[in-house]
Amino acid sequence: GWCGSSSKYTRTTELRRVEDNDIYKLATILDVNACWRKLMSIIPKGLDVQACSAAGAVKITANGGPKYTAQDISLIDGVAERLPPDQSISQVMIDEWKTSGKLNERPTVGVLLQLLVEAELFSAADFVALNFLNEPKPERPADGPAAHFSLELGDDMD
């Protein structure tokens, strides 16, 4: 087993080097509520991946615009329609993304994590932080649906 402080991957680990079983677990989380679409739609074009893998380094609004168009997303939908029902559509999407691009454009775990936070896909982001990187869960925004929702211990208490 892993000792307490070691992580399975680092932020610069390329996604294509991540074990299939780990990608599969992530994919099942992204399948819920079609979260893979949100991730795919914000992947930026022409990332300098090694420079972007560290915490807080991705400039999402990078000049290149989005890597994938609505048509690319429909293509994944088309592939998924021919999949057996127990197969993960998110896995198809990640398989396309992880092998795409030139040498320094291939996505890393660090890039993935930051894009998940940017898209507010916190189930997947928490999973990647804890299980891939052995890092604390990413911070939540102060407002909106992702914000912490806690018990109000107020005056309506007897």
Binding site: N33, C35, E120, L151
Partner: peptide, 21 residues
Amino acid sequence: MNIWGGQYNHTVQSLFALFKK
């Protein structure tokens, strides 16, 4: 629950707080 629990990873304790509110 697919959205609030599935995408945002909220806990049953948060759901309990929401029901109380």
